[in-house]
Amino acid sequence: MQTWTEKVILFVWCGFSYVFLLSPMVVVMGASLHGGEFSAAIKFPPDEPSFQWYSKIPTEQFEALALSLLVAAVATFIAALIAIPAALGLVRSNFKLKFAITSVFRAPLQIPAIVSGIAFLQLYYLIFDTSGLMLAGTIPGMLLGHVFIATPFLFGTIVAVLQRFDHRLEEASYSLGAGRWRTLYRVTLPTIMPGIYSGGLYAFMVSFADVPMSIFLTAPGFVTYPVELFYAMENDFDPSILASSSIVIVFCLAMLLVVQKVVGLETLLRSGGGSAR
């Protein structure tokens, strides 16, 4: 049984943690409802609450949001296509270069994103000089960079799940007459699915939120959402930025709820997303 003091300590500790984690979001969402005169400073709590700034969000931000969602989704998908076979192969094989190749797959986590951004830009210029093909400011160019930073997250979670995988499940499948491909399809993939989901969620988020690398791969009229917000904050701040941020916060919470409903957040957390690092 918890004593009275333990309960108080638990309550205060958890209370502080929640305030600390949630207050920035509450402030942003609250201030987005500012209804008074234009102000370059955040007003919280808002005067005369209204949704006026929501109608003043510039269309570029919506276009950027659409681009970001597309890039994040496609990059996550491609990263999964790379990470699943890579993790399966590396966890189960025993060849000499296993550890070297494993660290190659984790390397993008060690490189600051801004360095990766510069590197990709340099690479694209080089490709342009030799072949006349310009990748910077294009969807393939952007995707390449995002796949690069997203793959380690999927790779890491899938490796973590596979290391705890009970190989007897596959033996049981073989003994029941299923061949290698059937076993992969009916046993292995479904069993590691929670790891794929959680890794995919991290990968999507990392790609969706990336500024330092994406900022090098944008072009006029081709800007991802966080970069667009970054520019907007620098150049001409107004509460419409808060409004558009609030929409994204609500969107992200909704997505978490959907994932929770579909796979269960507990499975996600248990599959050890943290060990990606």
Binding site: D166, R168, L169, E171, A172, S173, R186, V187, P190, T191
Partner: peptide
């Protein structure tokens, strides 16, 4: 198998 190895 000893630990059943049922497909979860």
């Amino acid at each position: 198998f000893q630990d059943y190895a049922l497909f979860p």
